[in-house]
């Protein structure tokens, strides 16, 4: 008898509906309205790469030791340097970082002895072309500048 009544009054369905109904209240909304609402990115997030510069004189911190390039499993970092005849040190000339092949594992960041290379919280890496995904030294030092497109 009870089972028949439960069946007739759709108890099992109403039970489920009640769960859905409970979460209707606007304060229970958890969806992030992304472009309007910026997500909170964790401090350790591994996103867009950055090549740090000395904030006082704008010189790069990189000592061209090539360790990041050796640590990278995808071999996508190319460090171009030249020996300075006066100081007998290596000067950084170019630095390319191909984000299209990067898997953001953080091994390069861990390998850098002077914390010059860093993966930052920036996560918007889309670009209009494949070439746009290859970061040169300027982009790495100054960050991604949003491009203006004129139609």
């Amino acid at each position: 008898m009870r089972t028949i009544l439960r069946k007739v009054f759709l108890v099992d369905l109403l039970q489920g509906m009640w769960v859905t109904f409970r979460t209707q209240h606007p304060k229970n909304i958890v969806t992030e309205q992304y472009p309007f609402e910026r997500p909170k990115i964790a401090e350790r997030y591994r996103g867009a790469p950055r090549l740090n510069v000395n904030p006082e004189n704008g010189q790069t911190l990189c000592i061209s030791c090539d360790l990041c390039a050796l640590a990278c499993p995808e071999a996508l970092i190319v460090v171009g340097w030249e020996r300075n005849p006066e100081t007998k040190r290596k000067d950084l000339i170019t630095f390319t970082f191909d984000t299209s092949r990067c898997m953001f594992c953080g091994l390069c960041e861990d390998a850098c002895p002077v914390d010059a290379l860093e993966l930052t919280q920036d996560f918007e890496l889309a670009s209009y072309s494949r070439e746009g995904a290859i970061f040169d030294r300027q982009i790495l030092e100054e960050g991604i500048q949003p491009k203006k497109y004129v139609f």
Binding site: V30, A42, E43, R44, Y45, R46, M103, F104, C105
Partner: peptide, 22 residues
């Protein structure tokens, strides 16, 4: 998905990635 988000947030804060954590 709502509850899974909490676990992903913990991963993100712990190691910096949500899905392929390393």
């Amino acid at each position: 998905m709502r509850e899974r988000e909490y676990t992903l947030d913990i991963f993100e804060k712990y190691c910096g990635a949500r899905l392929t954590t390393h």
